[in-house]
Structures are given as C-alpha cells and as structure tokens.
Design a protein around this nucleic acid. Structure first.
Lengths: 200, 200
DNA sequence: CTACGAAGTCAACACTTGTAGGCCAACAGA
DNA sequence: TCTGTTGGCCTACAAGTGTTGACTTCGTAG
C-alpha cells in the first residue's frame, strides 16, 4: 500500500536518488506496456508481465501495490502537442494528423490505453483526461469561439481515435494499407474543418 | 458440441419447429448481449449472464457449446443498410450518419461488438466482416472508382466508429452532449467527401 | 568484518473462471 | 399408462487469477 514514488523516468542523476531496483522497475513497466497494448487489461496478467520482465510476480505487487497501480504507472501519456501558438492556423488539421500518426506508431502506450479504455472504467477516464488536457487547448487556439473548443476537440478526437482504432487495434486491412501520406491527405481537411470552420 | 441451430430469430411459426426451450435460449442471448455490451468479453462471465437470464450456467454450455459459441450466437449484426441505389448520391453522407446513429442507439449489439472487438481476436474479425460486407457495397455505388471502394469505406468506418467509441463507450462528455442533429451536421460532409470526392 | 536494510524468491491463500457429468422433473407419443 | 426424450439444476473439477507473508540473498555503511 505504501508504494514509493518512482523517479525512474526522471533522468536526473544529481538530485533524484536512483535506487538499485530502478532497472527492475523499468523492466516491469516496459513489459506491462507491451502486455496491456497487446491484450487489454483483463488478459494482461501480472504473472505474464512478470515473466516477460523476468522477475517474480510478487515484485510487481511490492513496487506498484496492485494491478491498477501498475496500469496507472505504466500508462502515462504525453501527447507532446506542439505549441498551439506556433501552429499555422490555416494548416492546423494537417499538423495534427501527422503528429498523431507519428505518436501512435512510435509509442505503444497509446494502443494500450485505447485497448484498456474500452473495457476498464479507469482506462476510459484516463483517456478522457488525456484528450481534455492536451487536445482541447489546441482547439481553443484554433477555433473561432473558445466556448466551442471542447465540442470541436471531441469531434477531432473522434476522427483520430477512429483511425487509430481501425488501423492499430481492429486492423482493418484497407486502413492498414493506407500510407501515412494518404491518411494525412484524407483526414487533414476533416480536422481543419472540425477545428476552424464556422458551426454548421 | 452438436449445438442445434437456433431459429428463434426467425419468426416463422409455420415451418420452423419451435422448441420448448426457445424462451430460455432467447433469455440467454438477451442477457449475453447486455453483458457483452457493458463489460466486454472477458468480464462478461457465463455465470453472470446465466444469473441475469435466471437459469443455470450449465444451460449456456448445453445450448451454445462454450463461451465463444455464445458470443457468436449473441452478436449477429445486420446494419440493415439502405439500398445503395436508392440513396441520393449527393447526400449519401448525411443518410449514412443518420442511419448509423439510429442503429447504434437502438441496438446494444453494436456496442457489444465494439467493446469485444478491441480485446478479442474473433470480435475484431467479426467487426471487419460486418463493415466489409455491409458498408463497402454502399461505398462502391457512391464513389467514382469502384476499385477505391474498400479504402473509402474504411475511412468512413474510421469516422463512424470513432464517433461511436467516444460517444457510447468512452463517453467523452462533449461528444455525449452533442445532439443527433449536430452530429449529423458535422459528420455528413466528412462522410460525403470520403465516399464521393476525388482522391486528394 | 559485521550488521542492517533493500532486493528478490518461494509457497501458499482465497477466489473466480470455463467446463463436464450425473441426476431429477416435465413432457410427448405409444 | 408406460417410455424415451427434452429441459433444467446441482456439484465438482482443474486451471488460472490477484495478492500475501515469510524466507533468503545481496550490497553497502559503520
């Protein structure tokens, strides 16, 4: 229950006291991310994760308290959205789609969160939080009326998540077959309209 | 193993020999649909479904063989797409969005399939099949080059499934707050473009 | 070197899961 | 009425789950 806060991601060797166990902790997190991404919450068992990380299942409990704690620690998302002010307003749609495609392909955490979000309440809330905190600000800068930002961000999220769902989770063959350039070309005008066009 | 084919959904009282157990079979299917929609595949246990249907878990096994058999029997989807020929080509986007919204709100099976598809291989394949067989023909009639129909249908599916995901599964508040009319107004042009516009 | 705390191992727990098989009651045709 | 079939319930099992606590090993400060 009294799990100590990990600072393993804080790569500051000066102030942060690195513990001897940090390598194990990271191995657990890496294995957890893979399993959650591949199997979803229920089928990613602590035993399987521990086996992947080549440690004892009880270590997972010791370091992360319980399965939910492990999930929370494993899935911390930073969409690293570009500074909205720096985005060209007339091309924000294209920039967003390209950015998201890159994020999604280099980072399995997003797939993990999407898989878990559909089955697990905590996962769904985490997903909400990520998009609210990280996508809405962009919408706020881009759209004509700031009050509409949440709705416009939600529309954009629907399009982006739908693409991720069909491409990286359900793996619809035609969607997988599309090149990144084609996807950008098709989706950019959609995002552009959701974010900047006047309300229909 | 030798599960007999249910004809409970075939409401032909003349030829189809109705069995005494059909009411139980239907109760099981109804409960299964609810549980799969609410909990996904893993967390929808046979015991819970049986309890909802007010029968013994072993009945589920007897009638549907195993859990996968139950899922297959419970989730049979008919999007009942309107005849593509009857659709006005210039307004196919609006018609599609409206149709899908109606389908999704009256039929929890779609939510069940979406939830299960993200965790379960069989679910993902079933989902693929549904969209391939039922959405692609519409795209074929609507789009300029029939060869592009799968890709265009996939783009439309991404947008529609993304909306369903954020509205009915993840329940993003801004998406839930949108009225059906607003959703149609926003998404119709997108679908229209994905299906009918020239390739970008 | 020694002692102490951290890191890691092992075995077990309480529980849930899908699934199997035996048993009894209700029905239908003779 | 008797008999074979169908519908239904109960108990049980083997496997797998998250989780716990006691034990051993290791690294290091004194």
């Amino acid at each position: 229950m009294d799990v100590k806060v990990s600072n393993s991601s804080n790569a500051d060797p000066g102030s942060g006291a690195r513990r001897r166990s940090d390598v194990t902790r990271d191995a657990i997190l890496t294995a957890a991310r893979e399993r959650f991404a591949a199997d979803g919450y229920e089928r990613a068992t602590i035993r399987a994760i521990a086996k992947d990380a080549d440690i004892d299942p009880s270590m997972v409990m010791r370091y992360y308290g319980n399965k939910e704690g492990l999930f929370a620690a494993a899935v911390s998302i930073d969409l690293s959205m570009p500074d909205p002010a720096a985005l060209p307003r007339h091309d924000v749609g294209r920039a967003l789609v390209a950015h998201f495609l890159g994020m999604w392909e280099e980072n399995e955490v997003l797939t993990a969160l999407l898989r878990v979000g559909t089955t697990n309440q905590a996962g769904a809330e985490r997903m909400q939080q990520v998009f609210r905190e990280q996508l809405t600000p962009v919408a706020q800068k881009a759209c004509p009326d700031p009050e509409q930002a949440p709705a416009r961000a939600a529309l954009a999220a629907a399009q982006l998540l739908g693409l991720a769902l069909t491409r990286y989770v359900l793996r619809f063959p035609p969607t997988v077959a599309l090149s990144r350039e084609e996807i950008v070309a098709w989706l950019a005008p959609t995002l552009q309209r959701y974010l900047t066009a006047p309300s229909p």
